[in-house]
Amino acid sequence: MKIVAYACAVAALVALHATVLSYVSVWGVKPDIGLVAVCLIGLLSGELEGLVVGLFVGWTMSLFSAADLAASMVAKGSVGFLAGLVGRQVAQVTPLVLVSGLVVASTLSSLMTIWSLKPNDQQDIWLMIRTILMPQACFDAVVGGLCYWLIWSRLNLDRLAEGREF
């Protein structure tokens, strides 16, 4: 059941990313909801779920993008796995922990993408960092914080997590 729920969520996520999300972009940058979702899943459900969902999200998103398949899968998978590891080390997940974690995760994932793009000169790298990496990290953190607040305060997360099994 959980697998079906995740598959539907990923399908909705990819559709949103490819269509509607470009309308909510700020300075041409849209939030990476896939990364936010993977980070939340890893943080709240553990490394294995974070990793598997991350790999799946990375793979499906790369099918509808020019992004390198391997880089996309490894980036999202790593984020899910690391979020799971961090979730075990942190006693309580506060909004501050989550937002800082998302900034770090988004930055690392973007750096991996820049590395896979192999830009021609340093000017291009700085331009990418200034115009894409930094706004996206902030955007992801804000969206992640909002999602967490919504899930925690409105959907009673503890009760949802009671029956988690993968």
Binding site: G46, L48, Q92
Partner: peptide, 18 residues
Amino acid sequence: MRMANFRSSYGARRLALG
């Protein structure tokens, strides 16, 4: 605030790492 994922079993963690 909510408690983090302490309930991940040792086997699941090893499998994830693998």
